[in-house]
Nucleic acid binder design. Structure first.
Length: 268
DNA sequence: ATGGTCGCACCGCGA
């Protein structure tokens, strides 16, 4: 049986609901994890999603900033014992359980802090916040609960590998690709036994990007992208991976997000 | 060579 999971930093779910609807109609993943929904829970646009058959929706939002949502055709059990990462009350993480073909899967949806411009925590508290958040993520383990498989997706705001950025040389001192960040992400994966599904499917040195800055004159011609969005899983699921698609074309849609959807497909 | 663009909420902040 097929299972598909998508992740997409939407940069305002209300503004871009037409793009979300188009994506769900054409690509029809079983589950879509959104980040940067930028909407308070009371104003979340449930009805257009339910109308497309996505009746199971878990949200964790706040006014104006951040916010995550997990939108599903399969029934979800929302886990309400959520950790408040860094104790600052930001809506940056949501965890749900669902069942598929006899397996129980825990799905984490993350929006890691961007970290500001200066990669030095002594002068930039936002960078310190990002590092602290990554440190706390080291507590996550793909095999934390016996009998439960794990998937972790989201905008992690770190491009860990040389070929996850357009120029390693030019980005080593740029927040998202500094060694302290990339080593942090590598440690979370190693200690937590997570498999990087995008790189399992498309190994280095092929370039993989999921984000292109709004500030480029011509994002497509310059192609100065970064792989900031990720899909990881426990080993029992990675062996059933059939495809990973990065929807590059979505960056060229009308009034796009600066991130594009990534979709992982499994045969369970 | 060091700006450049977004979205939201309010005329700055975070990305």
């Amino acid at each position: 049986m097929a299972l598909s999971i998508a992740t997409w930093n939407i940069n305002s779910v209300r503004l871009r609901m037409p793009l979300v609807e188009h994506f769900l109609k054409v690509w029809a993943p079983d589950v879509l994890c959104l980040q940067e929904t930028k909407v308070h829970n009371g104003e979340f646009p449930f009805s257009p999603l339910r109308a497309l058959g996505y009746e199971h929706i878990a949200i964790h939002g706040q006014k104006g900033y951040h916010g995550v949502a997990t939108i599903s055709r399969l029934p979800l059990h929302e886990l309400t014992d959520r950790r408040d990462y860094c104790g600052v009350g930001d809506a940056r993480h949501l965890s749900v359980l669902f069942d598929k073909n006899g397996k129980t899967i825990r799905l984490h949806n993350f929006y890691v802090p961007a970290g500001g411009d200066e990669p030095d925590r002594t002068i930039n508290p936002k960078f310190g916040h990002k590092l602290d958040f990554v440190e706390e993520m080291k507590l996550l383990h793909a095999e934390a609960d016996a009998g439960i498989s794990s998937i972790l997706v989201g905008d992690l705001n770190i491009a860990p590998l040389e070929h996850d950025v357009w120029s390693q040389k030019q980005l080593l001192k740029i927040v998202s690709h500094t060694p302290i960040e990339t080593e942090g992400l590598t440690t979370i994966m190693r200690d937590g036994a997570w498999v990087d599904l995008m790189r399992q499917h498309t190994p280095s040195p092929e370039k993989l990007y999921t984000w292109w800055s709004y500030r480029a004159k011509d994002w497509e011609a310059a192609d100065r992208g970064r792989r900031l969005d990720h899909i990881w899983s426990s080993a029992d699921l990675s062996s059933h991976l059939t495809n990973v698609e990065i929807l590059r074309e979505a960056r060229g849609w009308e009034r796009p997000s600066d991130h594009v959807p990534v979709i992982a497909s499994f045969d369970l």
